[in-house]
Nucleic acid binder design. Structure first.
Lengths: 199, 199
DNA sequence: CCACCGATTGACTGGTCAATCAACCGCAGG
DNA sequence: CCTGCGGTTGATTGACCAGTCAATCGGTGG
């Protein structure tokens, strides 16, 4: 190795930002909070990032691009729409299981804050909706899904349900401890595909 | 009439706040923006409200209490769960049709901003979820809905879908003009109750 | 041993607003 | 005509904080 990684300060700052944003929310965190939590001088944040916004930006883009890939990959498998949707929901729920603080920040501060901050990312967010809509449209073309529902409509309903469940866990409206995430994924897919009424 | 209403300044301020919050977002609006838009002196805002937060508070509580009543009423009708859920979704969509700016503010600044501002209102928001869950539970008890889905789970999925559609209209991710709201309501209920797969 | 350069530090500035407050207006009742 | 009072005004204050910048550190190559 060329040189021992000198405790990558940039990463240190990003990780600290996740913790602090998750704890206090973006607006309530001062840049000094991030620097303190990272054990780094105030000014260094501005050495690596142009602004406080850019820190959040980076966190969002890093993670969201993975989601877009996951959706794309799910679609590429030749499986049925039920399996594809399960894969998408599974990826999102796993992201939460793996790093709840990061997901909290992304959902609360970007995705659902579509007015203030998310405005910048509407395009990327929309791309996710469209990816899901593509899965639905494909399922309809194959006759596996009913054709009388607009794909984008179904996509929004599906993604909305996913995000709402996430929010429920994040804000403890719904108990996260006892709920098994895989079970939640299956239940959600069942609900959306089979419906609430008995078959 | 006793006396000509002396242009109720308090109301004037609230209505102005709706417009300005909807346009700029809560954080980006200065109190002076509200006062200017209402054609009223800066200080008067503080005569009627303790703080900028309280203005938003008032807007939220005013409208949300109506939703809680609507859910309660929908539940009291002896109709099936499908009709009850349709009534709830219909009420929310109608609220948007009637006053899109107010709904935008409530959704964007309170409901989805559960971290910063909505924290205060988590209790009231939760009450809505629970009202919907009660409808589901009742439907299950009557055998009209499958019993293997946790009512609170179904409620979150349903409400999440509703809110996501609203967000889609608000941010024009989904065209609102061509979409008939009543049709959207029926389609949503169909999706949730019957599922995406063909029966 | 020096010159150089990017990383790192943290005190400081400039601007922004929420909230306060002292004064003003106009009417009701004496 | 005065007095009091609630509604109304808008200039002022005081806190807060993002972003700047000049100084320092520490390593590398000549």
């Amino acid at each position: 190795m060329a040189q021992a990684p000198p405790a990558d300060k940039r990463r240190l700052i990003l990780d600290a930002a996740i913790r602090v944003f998750a704890r206090q929310g973006f607006h309530a965190t001062r840049v000094s909070d991030i620097a303190d939590d990272a054990g780094v001088a105030y000014g260094l944040v501005y050495h690596y990032f142009r602004s406080k916004d850019e820190v959040l930006n980076e966190l969002f883009v890093e993670r969201w691009s993975l989601l877009l890939v996951a959706i794309e990959e799910a679609d590429r498998t030749g499986a049925g729409p039920r399996e594809k949707l399960g894969a998408v929901a599974g990826f999102i729920f796993d992201s939460y299981r793996h790093d709840p603080e990061l997901m909290k920040v992304i959902i609360v501060e970007v995705t659902r804050a579509a007015n203030s901050f998310g405005q910048t990312h509407l395009e990327e967010i929309r791309r996710a909706y469209e990816g899901i809509a593509k899965i639905v449209a494909d399922g309809q073309a194959r006759g596996a899904l009913r054709a009388d529902v607009e794909p984008m409509f179904a996509s929004m309903a599906f993604y909305g349900a996913v995000e709402q469940l996430l929010s429920g866990w994040i804000f403890e409206t719904i108990p996260a401890s006892e709920t098994d995430f895989d079970q939640a994924r299956d239940l959600l897919v069942t609900t959306i595909c089979d419906g609430l009424e008995p078959r």
